[in-house]
Computed example of a mutant assay.
Amino acid sequence: MTRYTLLFLCLAFFPAFNAAADADIPAYNATLDGFAYPFDVDDFALESQGLDLQMAYMDLHPANQAKGVVVLLHGKNFSGFYWERIARALVKKSYRVIIPDQIGFGKSSRPQHYLYSFAGLANNTQKLLSSLGVERATIVGHSMGGMLATKFSKYFADTVERLILINPIGLEDYLQYVDYQDPAVFLVNELNKTPSSIRSYQQKNYYDGKWSPAYEALLEPHIGQLKHKDYPLVAMNNALTYNPIFSEPIIYDLPQLNMPVTLIIGTRDRTGPGRAFKKSGVDYQLGQYQTLGKQVAATLQQGQLIELEGLGHMPQFEDWQRFETVFMPLF
Rank of each mutant, 00 (worst) to 15 (best):
T125I: 02
V91N: 06
I98C: 08
P111Y: 06
I86R: 03
K107L: 07
D101A: 08
G145Q: 11
L121M: 15
G146M: 12
V91I: 10
N77S: 13
V97E: 03
R110H: 12
K76N: 12
A149V: 01
K93L: 11
I86T: 15
T159L: 00
K151W: 15
L73C: 09
F78V: 08
K107D: 08
N123Q: 15
K151A: 07
L72T: 00
L132A: 08
S153G: 12
L129E: 07
Q102W: 09
V71D: 01
L132Q: 14
V97R: 01
L128F: 06
V134T: 11
G145I: 12
K76P: 00
G80Y: 08
I86S: 09
K151T: 15
F118G: 05
T125A: 09
K151M: 10
R110M: 05
V91R: 12
G141A: 12
G145M: 09
D101P: 05
S109V: 04
M144Q: 11
K76D: 14
Y114T: 04
L132Y: 11
F152W: 02
A137L: 04
V134G: 01
N124A: 05
G141K: 04
G68Y: 00
N123Y: 02
Q112M: 03
G145W: 12
G146V: 06
G104S: 11
D158V: 02
K107T: 04
A87H: 08
Y95W: 13
K93A: 13
K76L: 13
Q102E: 07
V69G: 01
A149Q: 07
G141Y: 09
D158Y: 02
S130R: 14
K92G: 12
Y95E: 03
I86C: 09
G80A: 14
H142Y: 08
R88N: 14
M144A: 15
Y95M: 01
K127C: 02
S109C: 05
A157C: 03
G68E: 03
I99N: 10
A89E: 15
H113A: 14
L148H: 12
A137Q: 06
N124F: 00
L115G: 06
L148D: 06
G106S: 04
S108M: 06
T150H: 10
F105H: 13
I98L: 13
V140K: 07
G146P: 10
N77F: 09
L128N: 10
L121I: 06
L128Y: 07
Y114H: 11
M144I: 07
Y116W: 04
T159I: 00
F152G: 02
S131T: 07
Q102V: 02
E135N: 14
Y95F: 15
A149C: 04
D101G: 07
I98E: 06
A89I: 08
R136I: 00
D158N: 13
S79T: 10
D158K: 15
V91K: 10
A149Y: 01
G141L: 09
V140F: 11
D101N: 13
T138C: 02
S79Q: 14
V69I: 11
Y114R: 04
E135M: 05
M144H: 10
G133T: 04
W83T: 04
N124T: 02
G145S: 11
F156C: 05
L129P: 12
G120L: 12
K154E: 15
V70N: 02
V91L: 03
P111T: 08
M147Q: 14
Y155S: 13
S117P: 11
